[in-house]
Design a protein around this nucleic acid. Sequence first.
DNA 1: GCAATAGTGTCTATTAGACAATATTTC
DNA 2: GAAATATTGTCTAATAGACACTATTGC
Lengths: 251, 251
Amino acid sequence: MPYDPSAFPPFAVTVDLVVLTVRRHALCALAVRRGEPPYQGRWALPGGFVRADEDLAAAAARELNEETGLRAHEPGSTGPEAHLEQLATYGDPDRDPRMRVVSVAHLVLAPDLPSPTAGGDAHSVRWAPVETLLAPAGSAGREGEQVAPLAFDHARILGDGVERARSKIEYSSLATAFCPPEFTVGELRRVYEAVWGVALDPRNFHRKVTGTPGFLVPTGGTTTRQGGRPAQLFRAGGATLLNPPMLRPEV
Amino acid sequence: MPYDPSAFPPFAVTVDLVVLTVRRHALCALAVRRGEPPYQGRWALPGGFVRADEDLAAAAARELNEETGLRAHEPGSTGPEAHLEQLATYGDPDRDPRMRVVSVAHLVLAPDLPSPTAGGDAHSVRWAPVETLLAPAGSAGREGEQVAPLAFDHARILGDGVERARSKIEYSSLATAFCPPEFTVGELRRVYEAVWGVALDPRNFHRKVTGTPGFLVPTGGTTTRQGGRPAQLFRAGGATLLNPPMLRPEV
DNA sequence: GCAATAGTGTCTATTAGACAATATTTC
DNA sequence: GAAATATTGTCTAATAGACACTATTGC
């Protein structure tokens, strides 16, 4: 069927971002409050239109930088900052009541930021625990806060992003993307515990991560910022795939 | 930044299909010959425009049925036929010289079809081993056939689909999607060997797959279609995630 | 009998997980 | 010293992989 490239149905293409971080022992996502209909006043994932001459990953990196000041750290490049990867694409004809919009969702894993919402309006951008954002309608969050469901199909997108993150830290070294450039084994363990929502044995965890080749590189320094005996500091090693993988208990 | 939904850059949205099967011990993909520019005469992945009121998965299922007669078997539904899932989205501004096209690629895993290209023109549709389709320019295939690279960025898409299939049969039961409704342990083993390109120990493989809960259900029948001692026939069990996973040797 | 494939049994090196014990800090 | 965290060591049950052996067909 030879198609006529000028007779195509027109679509709008956007990128939406699932930006995850670990704050105070909880897995949190970035949410923005909508200032206009539809879903006015409701929380949504950050995102926006892809520009006419812009790659999808570039659009996601631009939106991330506009929203958080973070620089994207695509696979292959080096340096600190956040990990960015494509998540999935959502194109239900009714997902936006205004028009046909196809959204290419991206997943961002970021370290805990010193300033919650740098460069933004504190009333319209926030970090929230994912279980609060995904709480079924009518239920209350941990601090009793009543929350409306996320706008559009963003609850589904966030759920898919969280599940991707949970499974990806099993067999890749991406858990380090939630940590500052230098971190301790205990801090890395608390990332796994927050993302998976489980408690891990500190002794077996320590032996496992330090014994996985390429995962962690000691920097030589130590810190006592967690209290107790000083802990060695590490950087992320070169390995991207973990062998053997970290195993999520009791699945 | 409140965006104006009527002032968006227009995109064409297509679905492209990576349709994989195992034929004569080789992992093969479906390719169609292009009848018009650009890339006229070159092989490409099957695909086409998403219609104005059509979901992305529905568009992929429609294209699959038009091209192969296969019915898609989305996660959740039952019955035989092929497995379909979204793979990734490709939207480089220069990927199609005619216009801005965003393609949502899908991955299909299908059993070996009795008629190679039912309902199609045998000169313009074929199954080809993936290593032939991905061979670097100027090299010769297994039977000495010279092949031009796939059109557009389809070599990259095919490569991503093959890698997804290779990793997904490790921890899911999707290898059964390459088999007919009833199959033997030996036939399932040959699927793993073809997809991974390795030889597996038949004895350990048998113990492993029959010992993984929910993977295989015996039907009671036997067959000798492979020669030798009659083998038990199995159906795919209800499990989608394998625990423990199949381990790819020597990664 | 011979060749081919199916299926079971056994051994060993490795590993995941439980948990004791020790080290080094702050209060 | 008490409390907290870090780190090492040891034991055990489960497992992956190597491979001997038996079973059942077609020729």
